[in-house]
Nucleic acid binder design. Structure first.
Length: 830
RNA sequence: GGGCGAGUGGCGGAAUGGCAGACGCGCACGGUUCAGGUCCGUGUGUCCGAAAGGACGUGGGGGUUCAACUCCCCCCUCGCCCACCA
């Protein structure tokens, strides 16, 4: 239902009528476009191909302002390349597995599919009205068995290659959503989705071995530089967190305990040794007499929430384990402590502590009265006195054979000595952990594995895929700490594909990020039945030429999709090494300075805005409000201004369309058109869409003046047509209306959306005269109209002859004259 | 605590070493209109001035340059990311 607050009724068809009702225009052209089928990929046979992709939506309710912004920008990009003659793939689908559907299903006593597919229909209808240039024939939903069959197939290939595996470890557990979370889904100790404090649980879970690809994920970013936002690349780089250093094996009693360090040069400065309190290693090393103290401490640590534990303000705590570790370089015996400032999951879960050169170790040493030994002289004050560890470059001291070496030399030397003695070697460590992919929830892709008492983990054979979700609804889906699928005995019971005996299905489902790690490949051949995608189709379209989406996926989705692409490349299924050649992160739409939110009422509804102002005005307002990557505060935006502008365009088109046919041209108009086309082309291509719209406005004004002044009709017509074509990417309905008013028979197939982008005549871009700015001492004092080819000497002479220049100079002498013909002269007084 | 980015009229923004404020919103005045809205025109950084004209002006301070919103250094403020990763 649309609201009309300001518009009056207008006749639906109004080719020569200068009134403009955005809703009538929408109603008029939408059905015509459906019939003309303008956006099907492959319809421009033989043309170069370009894949323009928007991050696919999650179907939670109807589209909102954020979708309008993101898809509006993506649509300008897609339509631009279509206008430029490319065969463009611009698909749409839905990321339709996930928790909100499941929670809605529990509340309503339904199957999650009911809510999911109803929302998809709502969003699809809104996308149509919003006039996004999708190829609807390729639509997909990740929750369709036809899709998740191939998600399972891919999982099995990962399994075969040893890239999917199961292990038991302490995992992040969300007590509200009752499921495990990937490292990436824990933000500040809280569940990314629901905000609950995350706890740890020891569980056996499925993982993808993404750490195997850490180096390539890092190194291949070189080819994305300049085409992805710098900050996204930086975030990925930091997330992967490659550290180069050394593994050093210490001896504790009769066992070897390796540690990782980036500073093997400081080995002589190690004065104690720390093991993560929650690591199995601490338990194993603990001396009998220290056991009660250790166990009490460990209990304290376990009670801490992740948030408390991560606080850097907290004083250092720990407990001695009653054993010593032998430094392999010095033979020195170092006391071993258990402490919670050492992480069990990073490195080996143990460290050598060098308090003089590491702040955390120094804090601990001062709390426990441990010695501080400086081994790198950086020229700074003694850390033992100041409490500030030094980590800069310097010369080694108190370090036996390393003395006198600089930091870098000492690192190399220490590694060489360790290697020689067999007590260590150079190693690389990553902050990145393997991707925990199993979830204890229902509405996701089932993991296609059978657990057999005699054969163990057995993959479901390809020809039995998909492993379908059973029909479960409402209270059946209530989270109970294990997957709802586990409570469905009939579904769980199966026979072993290997031995035929009784066996059970794996009851976990996959993280929805698995679904979205390959959807862009499925779009290339959405109906392909012999594999996840047709290799030939993928070869034609991949990589994605332009990916558009929010920066909230800077780490998770983009890293996972890059990982999948590399694995598929290694499997020989894909030429591409990187999935997304270029990335554009659009900003958010906010209101009065903060994020829109239903719960606080700080909300603008897209449907209402579209009802009040029309689709084109909302789209244009979004794009004109600022650079695409900046946030937009809707409170600062004037859709009314856009409505006015669009109606000016429509009126101009009607006026130009009504001019009697003529060959008469006006150079001034031709020049204005050429300039606008030239700049708008560059601006659109470089995604400076707000500035491109400003050029359209200038062109519109120039043409209006031309019409009112009786300029040449041929020039005005060419200009109005160029304007309509360029505007078709930004305001598709109004552009088509203008095109029709200019006399084109759209119904017969002559649509502006099937018309080539205009080209500026270079001859018209060369000006007859140029305005030369004349400065005195850097301040503008005069302007001269000069021929563009004017010589330096002539220009200098003319500038010095200027009255304004003489007045500004007064009785001062001229020191120098800087001449940049033909644009500028700067007369510098003494 | 560390890293990255940003700061320009009343507002959104434009200008990437060479005319600061394009384009638009808002506002003011005038025209059109029975009226309101629409529409059309003019003006609109600040200060002095009737005007002509002038001075100042891109968070603050310094520097490089004939010339700095733009490049360099320091500081302030805001935003984002990471946060005991050895």
């Amino acid at each position: 239902m649309r609201e009309r607050t300001t518009m009056t009724e207008a006749p639906a068809a109004a080719a020569a009528d200068d009134r403009y009702d955005p809703h009538a225009v929408q109603d008029r052209w939408l059905p015509v476009w459906d019939r003309l089928d303008l956006f099907r990929a492959g319809r421009r046979e033989g043309a170069p191909k370009k894949y323009v992709l928007d991050m696919f939506p999650y179907p939670s309710g109807d589209l909102h302002m954020g979708h309008a912004e993101a898809f509006g920008i993506g649509d300008v990009v897609a339509r631009y390349w279509m206008r430029r003659g490319f065969d463009v793939l611009h698909p749409i689908g839905w990321d339709s597995f996930g928790l909100p559907a499941e929670n809605a299903a529990i509340k309503r006593g339904e199957h999650p599919a009911t809510w999911t597919y109803a929302n998809i229909e709502t969003q699809a209808e809104s996308f149509r009205r919003y006039a996004v240039s999708f190829d609807w024939s390729r639509r997909l939903h990740t929750s369709d068995p036809e899709y998740y069959r191939w998600t399972q197939w891919l999982f099995l290939r990962f399994l075969e290659r040893g890239l999917a595996y199961r292990k038991s470890s302490a995992v992040n557990w969300c007590p509200v959503d009752q499921t495990v979370l990937a490292n990436e889904q824990v933000v500040g100790g809280r569940c990314e989705r629901c905000g609950a404090e995350v706890t740890k649980r020891e569980l056996t879970q499925w993982y993808f071995r993404i750490t195997d690809y850490a180096d390539r994920l890092l190194d291949d970013m070189a080819q994305l530089e300049g085409r992805w936002p710098d900050r996204v690349l930086l975030m990925q780089k930091n997330w992967i967190g490659r550290s180069t250093g050394a593994t050093v094996r210490f001896r504790v009693g009769d066992r070897e305990v390796p540690v990782f360090t980036t500073r093997p040069d400081t080995l002589y400065g190690a004065t104690f040794f720390v093991v993560a309190a929650d690591a199995a290693l601490a338990d194993e090393l603990c001396a009998p007499e220290q056991r009660p103290a250790f166990e009490e401490y460990r209990e304290q640590v376990r009670k801490l929430s992740e948030i408390e534990r991560q606080s850097t303000e907290r004083p250092k705590t720990g407990v001695p384990l009653g054993v010593t570790a032998t430094n392999p370089l010095t033979g020195e015996e170092l006391p071993v402590y258990a402490a919670d400032y050492v992480l069990a999951e990073y490195g080996t879960g143990a460290i050598m502590a060098v308090p003089a050169h590491d702040q955390r170790d120094l804090d601990f040493a001062r709390a426990f009265g441990l010695p501080v030994r400086v081994v790198v002289d950086t020229g700074e004050a003694d850390p033992a006195e100041t409490g500030v560890a030094t980590s800069g470059d310097g010369v080694l001291v108190n370090s036996g054979p390393l003395d006198g070496l600089r930091k870098d030399e000492a690192i190399a030397r220490a590694v060489a000595v360790l290697a020689e003695r067999g007590t260590g070697e150079a190693t690389v460590n990553y902050r990145l952990r393997d991707w925990l992919l199993s979830r204890q929830r229902f509405w996701g892709c089932p993991i296609p594995v059978v657990h057999c008492p005699s054969c163990g983990e057995v993959p479901v054979p390809d020809d039995q895929l998909p492993v379908r979700l059973p029909d479960m609804r409402g209270a059946d889906l209530q989270p109970k700490g294990q997957s709802p699928l586990a409570s469905n005995a009939e579904w769980v019971r199966t026979s072993c594909p290997s031995c035929g005996g009784d066996a059970e299905r794996d009851t976990d489902t996959m993280d929805t990020f698995v679904d979205s790690s390959w959807y862009f490949l499925r779009y290339c051949s959405p109906d392909y039945e012999d594999g996840p995608f047709d290799p030939e189709a993928v070869r034609q379209w991949m990589p994605v030429a332009q990916y558009v989406g929010g920066v909230e996926h800077a780490i998770l989705h983009l890293l996972y999709a890059r990982f999948f692409t590399k694995v598929l490349h290694d499997m020989g299924m894909l030429d591409a090494v990187e999935p997304f050649a270029a990335l554009l992160n659009q900003g958010q739409v906010i209101l009065n300075g903060s994020a829109m939110s239903k719960s606080t009422g700080n909300l603008v509804e897209l449907g209402k805005e579209l009802g009040a102002y029309g689709v084109d005005a909302v789209r244009l307002s979004m794009v004109f409000a600022g650079p695409p990557e900046d946030d937009i505060d809707w409170a600062d935006v004037s859709p009314t201004g856009s409505v006015k502008y669009l109606s000016r365009v429509a009126r101009l088109a009607a006026d130009v369309g009504a001019l009697p046919p003529s060959d008469e041209r006006s150079e001034e108009v031709d020049r204005a058109v050429a300039r606008a086309v030239d700049e708008a082309t560059r601006l659109t291509e470089s995604h400076r869409l707000n500035v491109a719209v400003a050029r359209f406005m200038e062109l519109t004004s120039a043409l209006r003046k031309g019409v009112d002044a009786g300029a040449g009709a041929a020039s005005l017509r060419d200009g109005a047509e160029a304007l309509a074509v360029m505007l078709s990417c930004y305001a598709p309905y109004t552009a088509e209306e203008a095109w029709a008013r200019l006399g084109h028979d759209v119904e017969a197939g002559d649509s502006v959306h099937d018309t080539a982008w205009p080209v500026a005549d270079p001859a018209l871009l060369v000006e007859d005269t140029v305005t030369c700015v004349v400065q005195v001492g850097g301040k503008v004092r005069d302007r001269l109209e000069v021929p563009p080819g004017i010589g330096e000497d002539a220009l200098r002479e003319q500038a010095l002859a200027s009255d304004a220049v003489r007045r500004a100079l007064g009785d001062r002498e001229v020191r120098t004259v800087v001449v940049r013909a033909p644009k500028l002269v700067n007369v510098v007084p003494a």
